[in-house]
Amino acid sequence: MKSIRYALRIFSLACFVAISQQALAINIFTCEPEWHALATEIAGSEANVYVATSANQDPHHVQARPSLISAVRRADLVFCTGGGLESGWLPVLLSKGSNPKVQRAPGLLLAAEQVALLEKPVLLDRAEGDIHASGNPHVHLDPRRILIIAEKLKDRLIEIDAKDANGYQKRFDAFHQRWQKNIQHWEQQAAPLRNTPVIVHHRSWSYLLDWLGIRQVGELEPKPGIPPTPAHLASLISTTQTEHAQLILFTRYNGDKAAKWLTQRSDACAVELPFTVGGDDDSASLDELFSRLIDALVTTQTNCKKSGAHD
């Protein structure tokens, strides 16, 4: 009898510890690694930040696997790109997650809805490929937009979890300061890239190019979301010549086949870039990601010019 009472006491204590631990820390569900990094930055290391995808997965094509549903069930905040990027899986997570808190604001924060979007389509027709109705959703590659999103995230965290408001504000202020310096530094570093004509695999780099004043003159995909075809690639040979394209940008999950094919038939050089935090060994944080992107672009441009002059 005594042992049963003892066991019960231990059990209730364990339950209490488990529940109170869960209740103390805020649970944030993020869809992509860049938002995982930003949420960790603003919410601090005590927050439980869950990320749904890894850096080298294409966020357009992710399955609503059971563990994601469970993670949404426990979330206080769902923080994703939005703008249609996750339309194949996020709606399932939200509807199956049985969590009324995250169905809409403040529990649901979509980055693409917080900033102005590029490439808003004039004609909404699927014959034009996988076009997102509200515009290009890949907003995380513009650090100025990241800053706006970080501020919105801070506001949401304070709204959801007011007791920790000071912490969120403090961490955001520190990030804000550091990030503005970073932007200045990166812009200086990337100055030689201004007006450089480039070809991209998919329209994933539009915000980076827009920020740095790089000119996009072609896409390896014939239409967004349609893999490169031989006929389309062949047509790009003349584009690279007439537009003097110097760089071809792609990320790991695009595969290097199409980019390599075109570099062999033109003066342009292919450069593999991390698409998000964790995309390669040198981009473990948001700061490192942008440093790495700019470094890779500048270095490839410099080396490419040299070898070009060599010919």
Binding site: P66, I69, S70, A71, K96, S98
Partner: peptide, 12 residues
């Protein structure tokens, strides 16, 4: 009626 447990692993 479905019930989703508040656990790390998916239990429904």
């Amino acid at each position: 009626m479905t019930w989703l447990a508040p656990t790390e692993h998916f239990w429904q």
